[in-house]
Amino acid sequence: MANIKSAKKRISVIRQKTLRNKMIKSQVKTAIKKVTTAVAAGDAAAAKEALRAATSTIDKAKSKGVFHKNNASRKVSRLSKLVNTIA
């Protein structure tokens, strides 16, 4: 256990950042799941709307530093490719 004040603060700050990152990653996973379920159901309109929302969520996560830009780009690309299969 940390005894120094600054070390205690770092532990607290890291805990808060970890919770924030987990929340954002969970939102991204949910958005991706909505796209995949819409594609599986064969609903092109719902899939396109879900893709738009997922892209926005992924871009927000990228801008906050949760995902690397290439990782975010790869996720968006894969989802777009998936939606285009039913369009």
Rank of each mutant, 00 (worst) to 15 (best):
T30Q: 13
S73M: 10
A53N: 07
I58V: 11
F67H: 06
S63E: 07
I58A: 02
N21R: 10
A44R: 13
L51Q: 02
K17A: 14
S63N: 10
V35C: 12
N70E: 11
S73C: 04
G65Q: 05
S73F: 08
R52V: 07
T18F: 02
A54N: 04
G42N: 06
D59C: 01
S73T: 13
A53P: 00
N71W: 04
Q27W: 09
A50C: 03
N21G: 03
K25A: 13
V35D: 07
G42T: 01
K29F: 11
T30W: 11
T37D: 11
N70Y: 08
K25Y: 05
T55Y: 01
K17M: 14
H68A: 15
A54Y: 05
T18S: 08
M23D: 03
D59P: 05
F67L: 14
A46V: 05
I32L: 12
D43F: 04
M23L: 10
A45G: 04
S26T: 13
A31H: 11
T30S: 09
T37S: 14
K60Y: 06
A40N: 14
N71A: 12
A38V: 04
D43P: 12
S26W: 04
K69Y: 13
A44L: 08
K48L: 01
T55D: 05
K48V: 02
Q27Y: 11
A31D: 11
R20S: 12
K48T: 06
L19D: 07
I32A: 10
H68C: 00
G65N: 05
K62I: 15
K22G: 03
G42L: 06
A44M: 08
E49Q: 10
T57Y: 03
A50V: 01
T36Q: 12
A40H: 05
T36S: 07
H68E: 15
K34F: 07
D43N: 15
F67M: 08
E49S: 12
K29R: 14
T37H: 07
R20W: 08
G65P: 08
V66R: 03
V39R: 06
N21C: 06
A53V: 12
A45R: 05
I58P: 04
N70W: 08
M23R: 13
N71F: 08
S73Y: 04
A47R: 02
K33I: 09
E49C: 00
D59K: 15
L51T: 09
A50N: 07
A61T: 03
T37K: 15
A61S: 11
T18Y: 02
V35N: 10
S73W: 02
K64P: 00
A47M: 03
D43M: 01
A54C: 07
A41C: 04
